[in-house]
Design a protein around this nucleic acid. Structure first.
Length: 103
DNA sequence: CCGTTGACTTTCG
DNA sequence: GCGAAAGCCAACG
């Protein structure tokens, strides 16, 4: 077949992110062999079931912020989970660059 | 098959 | 630091 399970690969990469660290969509896409397809990472994460074990909350955008709409439930949940793992947010709602995961 | 949409990224002003 | 525009790829109707 021409194309393997891209979503599955993205999930695998996301699952490889250690706790207390975060990564960006573009970074995950590149590690999954889909360089330049940052949006695919978003699609893959959006298609996750609620009872997934994938740490989707460790994936944020290149601006150091959450891509989810502020004020939404998913946004608060992601923020809460990250803080529970030791990741803190700045007053501007951005994550510390030192918490980024770099393989 | 084609146009739109989207949990993105980069560049420019 | 922020907003707008262009570029990128896959899923949807």
């Amino acid at each position: 077949m021409p194309e393997p399970d891209n979503k599955h690969r993205i999930w695998q990469v996301v699952h490889a992110i250690p706790a207390g660290r975060v990564s960006s969509y573009g970074r995950v896409a590149k590690l999954a062999g889909l360089a330049g397809a940052a949006r695919l990472t978003g699609h893959a994460l959006r298609g996750l079931p609620r009872d997934t074990q994938i740490p989707w909350h460790r994936v944020i955008n290149s601006q150091g912020k959450l891509s989810l709409p502020p004020g939404g439930e998913a946004y608060e949940e992601q923020r809460q989970r990250l803080q529970a793992e030791g990741v803190f947010f700045t007053a501007a709602g951005r994550l510390r660059s030192q918490d980024y995961w770099w393989p």
